[in-house]
Design a protein around this nucleic acid. Structure first.
Lengths: 195, 195, 195, 195
DNA sequence: TATGAATGAGTTTTCATTCAT
DNA sequence: AATGAATGAAAACTCATTCAT
């Protein structure tokens, strides 16, 4: 097996461990056991535990969340593009739902781990910019109220997904994810729409 | 010093440590040092580190978040009550903003620590019920659209606060808290309002 | 309650703890809790944990085991006196059976605690001397074989009680105590008896 | 060094510590120091202190005491087989005498530690069964009195060794071990012998 | 006499990482 | 590339004892 494939196997095993135990409780030994390799084997591919965690985080940011990106088309209705963005991603979000707790875990660690923070900030800014651009476009197009705080709504649209993700952790049986998030986000969009 | 006062002193000292280092990195020794007591002294009041963390969590749930509660008045406009609820709490939320990372930390641990989960679930349900009652009242009063999913909006209104709290951790310089959360929540309320 | 009565209450409570947890696992706090007094209260009556354990040991040596003593009557059959000693004490031994594990525990600790050792040695010697005197008398009276090793048999007669006490700890459901001990001891006495 | 050899080295070092300090006073650090390994090194081979003690106990039960076993030959005199058993093992017993305090220590712990108890019970039953079989054979062969309580004598024969082992701890200078034990046991055998 | 908060050295155990093979 | 024994600093927790009240 080549090195990249081996790395990916270790990352996949680590994700299973992290979902089961959480970042705080996961031990290097857990990753080693799950990987099927020996301790030295894992350390051959990742220099440290933090390195492996960064690998896991990158795996999500690159392979999964990058799919959320879209191009803003200034010639089309901002409202329709926002609506499409939210609904088109429903499948992806449903898939991501199972990793939700893990994202939260990473976000929480990010406060104290600069390398985590950078990666997450970068991804956060990409998505925030996309949403803010769409809202701004809508204002220009007179679809949205001109006194709308662009950054507030962009933050809110993103936040509602993270926030309902938290609710999913606390009371999973009560939360229909990503349905509730999409409905809430759509209500927010409708709330800034001109009548 | 009596036992209750001493417990509170230890909790206050622990909060300072937690804000500085985060739950994952905080050591019992840090709590001990911050408390001004000896190791045995702290353990006299809290049987374990988890016990102390539970004490901290309880302190927030009981002394702080309980202030959010209000009585739903079926005779008044649901829209106005929701608006008042959001705006009246601005001061409290601004105060809570500094503890935001800590809440997130606790939420994240809650997945793996049943005692945390129970406490947080209880508090979550209280707030969710309050919001859902207000939305439901608004539908009855014909203020809100009758096809509104009550639980989705209730989850969204709460979620937007938690979610923007996450953003506050990731990119604090970009987030105006709780302004953005209140604006987003108001947009969401407006989005379900009949025209 | 006067001081002696209070001391005895503490000792009684301590015995219950020791039977439940064993000497090695019993903590000062356990004694305190069982006593119904506070920590300082117990320390007022006993200067240290070792002191309290000595108190417990003394309680047994003085109040219980002292009853085993008898006077050797050179005018009577040694065989009959031995037989009577063994059988007369059956009731006491049955009563002592429940404390057996505790005695064993004390014996074991005695290796490393000089104060324990002294007390137990003193008691051991008393009983050994009594048994040896009876065996020696039997030899003089031509009841027992003249090539009998007096100390070996005295040690054996006592040892069989302790040894079956050990068996009682290991496999209580298989041991009929003190029946087996008395039967074995009587067999030993018969084994040195002249035919 | 392979794992089994290293485990045995650690066990050997631990035995030296236990003989010196006793089970109750032996610290993990003592085992670590005696082993010549680091703390983590010892924990790599034994998951806990209790695990290491179990390892020591097993070492004795498997490597030493197992030598006591013999086959009962129904065609030979039970009396002679018993006598041979007792005398043939004199050397082994003398060797075991030095470990006597350690056995006692283990027996005492066994009351409160189920894993110890199981191991010791198993070994106890093996030896008890052997003795009981020999006594039963002797009754069938009319060598021993038919009203002999087989289990009482089997328990007594074993008990006298443990019991004199206790005496050896309490008053080592007075006890000729295993001489006294063998003499006492032989007296017991003679006591059930038909004249 | 009695309380119980407080002490602090000592105990077991953990765990990321290294390194000889 | 891979193994797994070994390291050792650091972690959580213990517990006999003290002492101000």
């Amino acid at each position: 097996m080549n090195s990249d494939a081996r790395r990916q196997k270790i990352i996949d095993a680590a994700i299973a461990v992290l979902l089961d135990k959480g970042v705080a409780a996961a031990r290097m030994n857990d990753f080693v056991d799950a990987s099927g390799l020996s301790k030295g084997g894992v350390y051959h591919h990742f220099d440290s535990k933090e390195d492996l965690l960064i690998g896991v985080l990158n795996h999500f940011l690159e392979d999964k969340l990058s799919r959320i990106q879209m191009e803003v088309d200034a010639g089309k209705s901002a409202y329709r593009q926002l609506k499409a963005l939210l609904h088109d991603q429903e499948e992806l979000m449903a898939e991501m739902g199972q990793y939700n707790q893990l994202f939260l875990d990473f976000f929480t660690q990010a406060q104290f781990l600069p390398r985590f923070r950078e990666l997450i900030q970068y991804q956060y800014n990409l998505f925030h910019t996309l949403l803010a651009d769409l809202v701004r476009l809508g204002i220009q197009q007179k679809e949205f109220n001109e006194d709308t705080d662009v950054d507030a709504i962009a933050a809110g649209l993103r936040g509602v997904f993270d926030g309902i993700g938290i609710a999913l952790m606390i009371a999973p049986e009560k939360i229909n994810f990503p349905r509730y998030a999409i409905d809430s986000a759509m209500a927010m969009v409708n709330g800034i729409r001109k009548v």
